[in-house]
């Protein structure tokens, strides 16, 4: 049997000419396949097995797993910690770095650390405000912003130096990602802002949750006018809504999430709201796939890795693509 080389269980893979990273995600994206990434919910636990159990569910249906960095300003296991565990087991990860909790000295160190652990993808984020979390008294750092963070890591990778100019002996071979939110004002500035992030080094984009296809289409039309879809790979964020109540809660409490009234009405009218939410998500994925310039989807669901896996399988986006073989479970003594 010939195994699709895209699904080699080990990540990082041998380097390829013209690639920034040795990761599978970059290979999938460059090959023109519709990429799928999914978000892992970090545990509040000192037990590495919890990370592995959650990752295993996702790894069978996606090309790379996002490790969040205290999203919603709630602290969990750090993204460097999660990535260090996952890369040992050969999982492809996207390490998220937010500018909220670390200054440039810490961030540059984490980038090198991540690369040393075998992280191939880094997503540069601003970070939710500390007021959103359960320790609102924490000091927001914001020494860098997401754009200058992109430029910083690109400098480290391509020019082999820190911001200070000091040399780096082995540069971090990472594919650089950024976030975009086409669903928040100022709407007409959003595509331009994306262009700015591309200019600063973004090679792939993961967007905020999409529940509004017309708004996404307008955004993408402008992105195509600017030719940005040829300069970066755009993965649109999606996620199943558990109920109309959850949808309302998210809309009010999660910064930057836009859910149109029709979506909530549809959930409310359904007999089984959870099933309806899942079906809605599958439909969204299928519609998003048809939009020119979209390179993939990024699936998120709070603490519901199994559901994410179901949604991806049911949407058919991984059809004809051999799901990746189960990741090697690391030997116990290696993680203990």
């Amino acid at each position: 049997m010939i195994v699709d080389p895209l699904y080699d269980p080990g990540d990082p893979l041998p380097p390829l000419p013209g690639h920034s990273s040795r990761g599978r995600l970059e290979r999938v994206l460059r090959s023109g396949k519709f990429a799928v990434t999914a978000e892992l919910n970090p545990p509040d636990s000192a037990d590495p097995r919890e990370v592995f159990e959650r990752a295993l569910v996702l790894s069978e249906v996606c090309d790379a797993i996002n490790a969040t960095d205290a999203s919603g300003a709630n602290t969990h296991m750090s993204s460097v910690g999660i990535c260090s565990l996952l890369t040992r087991a050969g999982y492809a990860v996207i390490m998220q770095i937010s500018c909220r909790d670390r200054n440039r000295i810490a961030i540059q160190g984490d980038v090198l650390g991540a690369a040393a652990m075998g992280v191939s993808n880094i997503l540069c984020l601003t970070g939710d405000g500390v007021q959103a979390g359960d320790q609102p008294g924490a000091k927001p750092v914001f020494d860098l912003d997401s754009t200058s963070l992109l430029e910083t890591i690109r400098t480290m990778r391509d020019e082999k130096r820190f911001l200070s100019g000091r040399k780096i002996t082995v540069p971090p071979a990472v594919l650089l990602g950024a976030a975009a939110n086409p669903f928040a004002p100022p709407y007409d500035y959003r595509p331009i802002h994306l262009g700015k992030k591309v200019a600063a080094g973004a090679q792939f984009i993961q967007t905020q949750y999409c529940y509004d296809i017309p708004l996404l289409e307008r955004f993408m039309a402008r992105v195509r006018d600017l030719d940005l879809h040829k300069k970066c790979f755009i993965l649109v964020g999606v996620g199943p809504l558990a109920s109309a109540k959850t949808a309302r809660w998210m809309r009010t409490n999660v910064p930057g999430v836009h859910i149109p009234d029709q979506v909530i009405a549809r959930l409310e009218g359904a007999q089984k709201q959870k099933l309806e939410g899942k079906n809605l998500c599958i439909e969204l994925i299928q519609q998003i796939r048809e939009i020119e310039g979209v390179a993939g989807v990024h699936v998120m669901a709070y603490r519901q890795e199994e559901l994410v896996s179901d949604v991806i399988s049911a949407s058919g986006i991984m059809k004809n693509r051999q799901p990746r073989p189960q990741a090697r479970r690391p030997a116990k003594e290696r993680i203990a």
């Binding site: 509040d44 750090s78 160190g109 000091k139 203990a336």
Partner: peptide, 20 residues
């Protein structure tokens, strides 16, 4: 204490424990 706020420090402590 120079480079990280409490959120980052707590996350790293948990990560450290999981990493042995």
């Amino acid at each position: 204490m120079r480079d990280r706020n409490r959120l980052a420090l707590q996350g790293d402590i948990l990560g450290a424990a999981a990493l042995g």
